[in-house]
Design a protein around this nucleic acid. Structure first.
Lengths: 251, 251
DNA sequence: AATAAGTGTTCTGGTCGGGAGAACGGGGGG
DNA sequence: CCCCCCGTTCTCCCGACCAGAACACTTATT
């Protein structure tokens, strides 16, 4: 489903925003050379974005503005799965003392909708809105395990199976074996695949018709998660949270 | 500082996104008639936005995607005042049991960066990213009170003094009197101006050079805030939270 | 001080692409 | 079965995007 008649001007604007996001605040000339555009074009785009609040000027540098947060925040707020799961994720974090997360799938990528920190939680560099490859996290695996096989293949084709660490899943074969195990267990595990020493347990949120709406997880340092915990009390607590959300969504 | 050579194509894209945000998911024809554009133009813009994750297609309807949350979330995460104030706002909410907020000023408007709910917190329809006129909230008044008079006048000229409720501040004169009182007290109050029965106390966060970086607040139903609390224990707790943030920002 | 080299901003014209309008395809209701 | 309305595709013309040059500053260097 590609754009047959892409609006090139809009694509330039978006490229500008994303470049500005990655590099942080910077000036017109630098952006122009990075994106191979003329200075005047960059300037026109930036002032247009500024006029509408999407970009701000700090002295001579430009940076992305909070208008994106308004649009994105509104979008998130209007998602049923967020509204219902939010309190559950918070209490999951409070009960376990660890870091709890909520992820949804969008265009084959995982998007963190929120994170809640318990009293002892590790501080990962995730944030609301962050995108990640589904096959690299427990959250993503919990979602993939509940998508039709054809859909999973589409996602592999579109985004590949990038290996973040040596432990990452690297082949289609390996992925499908892991997903089968997830389906049997009912929850997904990440034991140091994403980050050495970090253990993660995730459970899917499914609608009454069986469609996956997202996934909930808890992340904790391996030092606080014994091997028994990894397949005992912790998954149970995560599954129970996911279950409460499912019940509330399906009335 | 208006755009001298606005990129009209980009403005159409942005208008499309904002219309889509306000109306929620809807189809090409409806958007086209709302924005007085041709169907093909709308379609081209939407597919372009979709290609980059800013818009999604649900059946025949389009809706805004979470890419905005990624950009906005990244922008928020990179703000020093957010990084430092976030834990303080959370503990403010936990201590008081009420709703705590963090607001910053951008282009003359207030933008909520976050909200944290205590155990008894009321559930307002604010969300991270929401924009509000500064003169209508305690948070905004705490900020305005610490901006140069000329800046306040610019903001009045740009955004007016819209009256949300009959109690709202309606004239420049009235606003400046209120701001003077805020400066003397050190904190701002909203006693039912924004919402009948809601009381709100806000304190500014200032850098060592005296510049306002944002404001912190607590919102609670009037039934739980006695008149003594309104000028006693509660402001003290809010001021202390703001103070901790100031100390951490200024090292 | 005067110069040079960097910046962001403005201006203009040519040319490339955005978008109106018409045509297509397909799904749903009378 | 037909009709109406939807999203999508197509084509061609006119308008707008943007390269490049000129301008107005600030800052570093001589």
């Amino acid at each position: 489903m590609d754009a047959k008649h892409p609006v090139r001007t809009t694509e330039k604007t978006l490229a500008l925003v994303e470049e500005l996001m990655e590099k942080g605040p910077c000036g017109v000339t630098e952006l122009a050379s990075d994106l191979q555009m003329g200075k005047s074009a960059v300037h026109n785009h930036l002032t247009t974005l500024q006029k509408h609040g999407y970009v701000l000027k700090d002295g001579d540098d430009y940076r992305v503005g909070l208008k994106f947060l308004e649009v994105g925040g509104h979008s998130r707020k209007s998602m049923e799965v967020y509204q219902i799961a939010e309190p559950e994720v918070k209490s999951l974090a409070a009960d376990t003392g660890e870091l709890a997360n909520l992820l949804v799938e969008e265009q084959g990528m995982g998007v963190y909708l929120m994170r809640a920190k318990g009293d002892d939680a590790v501080d990962l560099d995730t944030y609301a809105g962050l995108r990640t490859n589904l096959h690299t996290t427990a959250l993503g695996k919990a979602i993939l395990a509940n998508l039709p096989e054809s859909r999973v293949d589409e996602i592999i084709e579109r985004h590949g199976l990038e290996q973040k660490t040596p432990k990452s899943i690297g082949t289609r074969q390996e992925l499908f074996e892991v997903l089968e195990a997830v389906r049997e267990r009912g929850y997904a595990i990440d034991d140091g695949e994403r980050l050495e020493g970090l253990r993660c347990i995730a459970a899917p949120i499914k609608s009454s018709s069986g469609e996956v709406l997202g996934a909930i997880s808890v992340s904790a340092p391996a030092s606080r998660v014994s091997d028994e915990d990894l397949h005992g009390a912790l998954p149970e607590r995560v599954l129970s949270a996911a279950n409460v959300v499912e019940l509330n969504i399906n009335y």
